[in-house]
Design a protein around this nucleic acid. Structure first.
Lengths: 349, 349
DNA sequence: AATCATTGTCGAAGCGCTTCGACACACTAT
DNA sequence: ATAGTGTGTCGAAGCGCTTCGACAATGATT
């Protein structure tokens, strides 16, 4: 491996000069800089990451923690992860992939060892046991918790208590509201919400509950009736759920679906029952665009802005690492795209 | 941050002793070891990753490179990535997430900087431009490429030329063969293969072509007729493809599908045409179990062993890093699970 | 002509760890 | 008693980089 010293020798300058060329922390004359850069290229020099981390106590690595069991739709998580990785690279950071398996210990390990400079947590639960560690920077009991000394972090998802935390998420409450508004405008009065699996609600995952809250309160204002039913994915579960919905609210003409694996079954079952979409019933989905456009009926939907979330998270983190930036909650405004699955209520009804 | 020296002082031993307790590379008396371990716990010591990497020239990090544009089904990639991360942890390694964006440069950067000790590449193309770098350990032109000095790597997927490379993959040729065998046994004589999108074949992605080769040669032995049609995902594309299939080969009764986003459309279209599955036509899929079991008809399928592939890859890599292990190609034997989508040919035909 | 910034470069001191050789000590075998 | 053989521990030398203070050299300001 070629070292800084070898580059310095080759260029006929001191090691520190090479270092300053690399970091740009002191001004270097153009001639010297070019000579050094030339040597670097010729020798194929790459600074040693370990040495750099040791000397500067900065690893230029961001840890991305993905829980093992996730409530998010997998492709969305992947999209976020990819967005995080690519955005991080543009800022000179690499990404360390952590699974939830180790739990809070992973936070301690990474923080304590200086493996990563910062941390992004995905799919945060309302009451997540990793949060206390992040609030005080991972140091369990320190005399003087100096500000800015701790491990910056950004959550993707919103916990119950956000004090001292930075979070990025889609504004799910607004999303829920947006969906009913759209249906209300089309004249629908009875709305059924097909939600995530019951387990998701039991685990008090933030996004599912917030969607529902936003949706319900807007529905109340608009005078609509809402029936919420959690639903496991797949055809059989959906069949049961759907039967119950029409049993309880035969006048239902609008559906809001927040469960990717229920989307296609719902459409198939409605078709099978002779209910045409969008002529007889309207369906609005909360899902990635890919699902919305690949479904058997092109779905009116609110997209999950995966890339944007990943990008935002990294950019906030980098800002924090640079001393700019602050703790705040960033909610991304939802956007509803009208496609072929929603239309005015049937005039006959 | 608490350092090795502080632990040593606290325990009343020298720094090297603490280091040996940690690494176990020299024998330490039980009493000393306990005392040191106690101090470590009390002080909440975590070895500094950078210092460790510098001193030992081992980062204990494995790089996982995921191409940006992928031919694999996204959830499968995610499953592999998670399996890689968790398996790596059990061997004391962390995982660095690299996207394909940087291309071969990423290999050079990571290799050159000692950021990672080893590398796993996913979704390898038949003629991948990252491979030459891996064969000689990432050093473009070195005088004496000493054996064992280079960056070990494992590919997930099979390139055209595997000399000097270690690869892990599902045996797709055997998979193709297995699928036709199953259909042949049930009496089907005319088989249609619904493949990945045309772009996948144009890019010469290994797994698609190998599946087809294995399938065709076994079909020839068994005297079956095979019609292969690449297909984009989604309903519209599938409708066109399916119409052409029955146009060209009206006697088709068996389908092999290797395209997750074509599975559900195919089932829906068959149903719509009044062809019952499995009574009139049989469908065998090559897809993750989750897709097979969540489809509207539970699919007879060959699973993609994502976890196993991830685990294998890491274990091979760790073996190489430990000086054990060798370059070899590991093909995982396919397993076909019979579910509800395949049955004997209709007697009337 | 003397003074003061400014700019560009260097030397040296670490960062926290691993690892090698040395060494003291307690044994066993002469 | 003497030499030989392990054990368990220590001291010191780095690993390759960053960064601080020092210091020429240059030009601007009196």
């Amino acid at each position: 491996m070629v070292t800084l010293a070898e580059v310095a020798q080759h260029a006929g300058v001191s090691a520190s000069t090479v270092s300053y060329v690399l970091s740009g922390k002191r001004s270097i004359s153009a001639t010297t800089r070019h000579r050094v850069e030339q040597s670097i290229r010729e020798l194929g020099y790459h600074p040693n990451a370990g040495a750099r981390a040791l000397a500067s106590s900065r690893s230029n690595i961001i840890a991305l923690m993905i829980p093992l069991r996730t409530d998010m739709y997998v492709p969305v998580m992947m999209e976020i992860a990819i967005a995080v990785a690519t955005t991080a690279r543009t800022h000179g950071y690499d990404v360390l992939l952590l699974t939830g398996e180790e739990g809070p210990d992973a936070v301690r390990r990474v923080t304590g060892s200086g493996l990563a400079d910062a941390m992004i947590l995905m799919d945060v639960e309302l009451d997540d046991d990793r949060l206390p560690l992040l609030r005080d920077g991972g140091a369990p009991a320190r005399a003087k918790p100096r500000v800015g000394d701790d491990q910056p972090s950004v959550l993707i998802g919103l916990p119950a208590d956000t004090t001292g935390l930075t979070c990025v998420d889609l504004d799910f409450a607004a999303t829920g509201a947006l969906c009913v508004e759209h249906l209300a405008k089309l004249g629908h009065r009875d709305i059924a919400v097909i939600g995530e699996a019951p387990a998701v609600y039991e685990r008090h995952t933030g996004f599912a509950e917030r969607t529902l809250d936003g949706l319900r309160s807007r529905a109340r204002e608009l005078g609509l009736r809402v029936l919420h039913r959690p639903c496991e994915g797949g055809y059989d579960a959906m069949a049961v759920t759907l039967a119950r919905v029409f049993d309880e609210r035969p006048a239902t003409t609008g559906f809001v679906v927040q469960n990717e694996s229920a989307v296609e079954p719902l459409l198939a079952l409605l078709r099978q029952q002779g209910r045409a979409v969008p002529e007889d019933v309207s369906v609005v989905a909360i899902c990635p665009d890919q699902v919305a456009t690949q479904a058997s009926v092109r779905l009116t939907s609110v997209a999950i802005p995966a890339q944007e979330m990943g990008r935002h998270a990294v950019e906030h983190l980098v800002a924090k690492l640079d001393g700019r930036g602050s703790d705040e909650v960033v909610l991304i405004a939802p956007e509803l795209t009208v496609r072929a699955s929603s239309g005015p209520v049937p005039s006959g009804s």
